[in-house]
């Protein structure tokens, strides 16, 4: 299944940035969860409705000057968690 064919399904993404991000940023990132990793990075993860929303998240990262390490789509199957 390709990402394009599942516009109506939220896909889960993991976005890794440099630095430990305070958990209070969760609201800013529309409820995505933040986990602090031992290597000094933060993993921002959760369901993201579509590509436009993903780009919105990336823009927010850019706007607060965070350094992006990686973006991974962690599953491509099934509907968003309910």
């Amino acid at each position: 299944m390709s990402a394009e064919s599942s516009d109506h399904v939220s896909l889960r993404y993991e976005i890794r940035v440099v630095g430990h991000l305070d958990p209070r940023w969760s609201a800013w990132f529309e409820g995505l969860s933040l986990s602090l990793e031992n290597d000094g990075t933060t993993l921002i993860s959760g369901p993201i409705p579509d590509q436009a929303a993903l780009h919105g998240v990336l823009r927010r990262l850019r706007d607060i000057g965070l350094t992006l390490v990686s973006i991974t789509q962690i599953d491509a199957m099934g509907p968003a968690d309910t």
Binding site: R24, W25, S26, A27, W28, D63, I64, G65
Partner: peptide, 17 residues
């Protein structure tokens, strides 16, 4: 300053939604 405003807004959203 744009960066400062974003950070303040994020805090507002968290502390006083």
């Amino acid at each position: 300053h744009h960066l400062f405003a974003d950070v303040l807004r994020a805090r507002l959203l968290d502390e006083q939604p």
